[in-house]
Structures are given as structure tokens and as C-alpha cells.
Design a protein around this nucleic acid. Structure first.
Length: 271
DNA sequence: CGTGTGCCCTGACAGC
DNA sequence: TGCTGTCAGGGCACAC
């Protein structure tokens, strides 16, 4: 379930066992995921030492002492299995240290991996156009106002655009809009300044709470079954069609389709 | 350039 | 039991 909080949780989980360790062995179980594995991947990182891990938007970063960074995207169904009891059907990339095994498992293969010169990460094509990190200083009402002015698509769709804000996905956009009481159908350029001012902390809080919950279940990521975090139990609108709004305002959560994907919201309090 | 649509892939689940 | 249809957390290519 990889949006920003899940990638962050995954990276933290990996770092506990991988940071500072030497990669002893690398195995590819197929030539590609969404894209072909990069040329020279196995050769480059075999024997390398991991010097740190990080995250940018929904991308996980594994830095090595070869001056390279293994970048991974989990797509829709990707996850890392740590010390799996047995090989998984969709373990496409497996990395071993002296003490642990890490398997990148992705049934749908919407995820992918690349190997990038660490010094040139910011220029990596997928990173070059990204908007600000939602948990960093760059996400402000002023930024949103500037980025959304005169934009015609619905605010929901614009928030999924990684060039506007980097790291939000369908779940957290729905949840943040509910928290900020903004109608997801509203034309992005017409969302009021006060509403954008509510939206910024709403985004931050929903992400931070989810990371907190994922963090509380970090050890689950070290289990072969790769259990998910607990935040799902706190969804206010996502997947809750027909249920009464948690604001107890008499509204019922409604599901609509925008850009071919589901949106859940409360028509009563989100205006 | 901005905008809208279709599609990549497998698995889970509902309904018959 | 097994079939069919629908849906799923993302992002890209493409047409207009």
C-alpha cells in the first residue's frame, strides 16, 4: 500500500537491517518489473556497502559507497519482504547481506527499480519535475495558490499530480480533503485561500499520523507476510461509502469517480 | 502547454 | 467448484 507514509515506513524498516551493511549477493528473478532492471545493477551493487537510506516522494532510496543509489518505486502492490521464510511468487529482486535477505515483491509489477549516480539524483528525470515534499518547508498555502491558479481540473486530481505536491496518492488526498472540508470536485483554481490554508496542515497531519501508525508496526515489515500499518482503521472517508460522516453532521460518505479512480467524500461538510 | 483517456499487470472478491 | 465481472494504494504514453 505504497503512498508516502508506506514508503517512509518501508524505508525505515529496511534501514534497521540494511544501513551500514555490505551487500553480499544480488539476484534478479526476471528481467524486468514495469521497466527492465538497469544494466549492470547486479555488478554495481554486489559487494557495495549501504551508506544510508532515504525517500523522495513515493520513491525509496538505498545509497551505496559506489556513488550509486538504488531507487525503487513500489507501484500499486510492491513491498519489501525481510527475511522471508520461503521464496515468494513475485520476489523479483533479492538482496542479501551477511545476516539478512531482502526481497522486493510486486505482484502487479507497476513498480520499478533504477540505479542512479547519487550526485545526480536531483536531475534524475522522475525527480526533476517533482513538487515539494508535503512534510517539508516547501508545501505552503502560497505554493498551492501559485501552482493551482487558473487550473481547471478538480482539486482532487491536481493533488494527485506529483508536480504539485510529491507523494500524495488516492487515499491521503481523499482523507486530507475531508479534513480540510474541501469538495474534491471543486475546480482547483477556485479553491479559496482559506481553504488552501486549511489544506496544508490537513495534508501534513494525515501523513504524519499514518507514518506514526506505520511506525508502530514497523516490526511487521520484518515479517515474511509483510503486514500493513494500522492507519487503515482511521480512515474517515476512504472506502467508507454509505457510512455516516465522522463529523456527525448528518452527511453520508459518497463515492464518485474522477479521472477513472474512486473518490470518497462527505457532500455535507466538504464544500 | 494543459487536459483527458487508456493501459501496463495480477489478485481478491462478489455474484451467479 | 468455477466462471465472469469489477476493482485496486501509480504513472506513463498518447491524442487533441
Amino acid at each position: 500500500m505504497p503512498e508516502l507514509p508506506e514508503v517512509e515506513t518501508t524505508v525505515r524498516g529496511l534501514a534497521r537491517f540494511l544501513d551500514g551493511e555490505r551487500i553480499e549477493r544480488v539476484m534478479l528473478n526476471r528481467p524486468d518489473m514495469r521497466f527492465a532492471f538497469p544494466q549492470g545493477l547486479v555488478q554495481n551493487i554486489t559487494g557495495a556497502r549501504v551508506t544510508g537510506l532515504g525517500r523522495r516522494a513515493k520513491y525509496g532510496l538505498i545509497h551505496t559507497d559506489r556513488g550509486t543509489t538504488l531507487v525503487f518505486h513500489l507501484g500499486m502492490s510492491g513491498r519489501w519482504r525481510i527475511d522471508p521464510a520461503e521464496p515468494g511468487k513475485h520476489d523479483h529482486l533479492v538482496i542479501e547481506t551477511a545476516a539478512h535477505r531482502f526481497a522486493l515483491n510486486d505482484a502487479r509489477r507497476f513498480g520499478f527499480v533504477d540505479l542512479v549516480e547519487t550526485a545526480a539524483l536531483d536531475a534524475w528525470p522522475a525527480f526533476a519535475a517533482l513538487g515539494p515534499e508535503p512534510l517539508g518547508p516547501g508545501l505552503t498555502p502560497a505554493h498551492l495558490h501559485a501552482a493551482l491558479t487558473n487550473r481547471k481540473p478538480a482539486i482532487k486530481l491536481m493533488l494527485l499530480d506529483q508536480r504539485i505536491v510529491a507523494g500524495l496518492g488516492n487515499i491521503y488526498v481523499c482523507e486530507a480533503l475531508w479534513r480540510a472540508r474541501i469538495d474534491p470536485r471543486k475546480t482547483a483554481g477556485t479553491v479559496s485561500r482559506p481553504a488552501l490554508t486549511r489544506l496544508v496542515p490537513a495534508i501534513r497531519e494525515v501523513l504524519e499520523q499514518s507514518i506514526g501508525d506505520g511506525g508502530s508496526s514497523l516490526r511487521d515489515y520484518a515479517r515474511p507476510d509483510g503486514e500493513l500499518g494500522y492507519f487503515a482503521s482511521r480512515f474517515a472517508v476512504y472506502g467508507r461509502e454509505g457510512q455516516s460522516c465522522q463529523r456527525d453532521d448528518g452527511g453520508a460518505v459518497r463515492r464518485i469517480v474522477q479521472g477513472g479512480r474512486s473518490t470518497w467524500y462527505c457532500p455535507k461538510c466538504q464544500r
